[in-house]
Amino acid sequence: MAELNLQPNIDDPDGFYAELLAAHEGLEKVESDALNARLVLVLANHIGDRHVLRQALAAAALKKED
């Protein structure tokens, strides 16, 4: 079974972070919230694997997974 990768996995992390912020630039809070929600759904669908998604939900909650 695939496992959630919690090790560094993105090339050029500073570049990605800048792109993430740029996507939100100039947006109102409600627009940013909506963008984040869409982004979560797009990424979740790309992952697809329910086991990995559950691990990701637990990791994001900063709780240790059961």
């Binding site: 919230d33 909506a34 929600a37 979560v40 759904l41 797009v42």
Partner: peptide, 20 residues
């Protein structure tokens, strides 16, 4: 509501969101 609206907005553009 934010997630609900996100699903609806995405469903207009992308097939993946429609089953949700």
């Amino acid at each position: 509501r934010i997630f609900r609206d996100a699903v609806l907005d995405l469903s207009e553009h992308f097939e993946f969101a429609r089953p949700m």
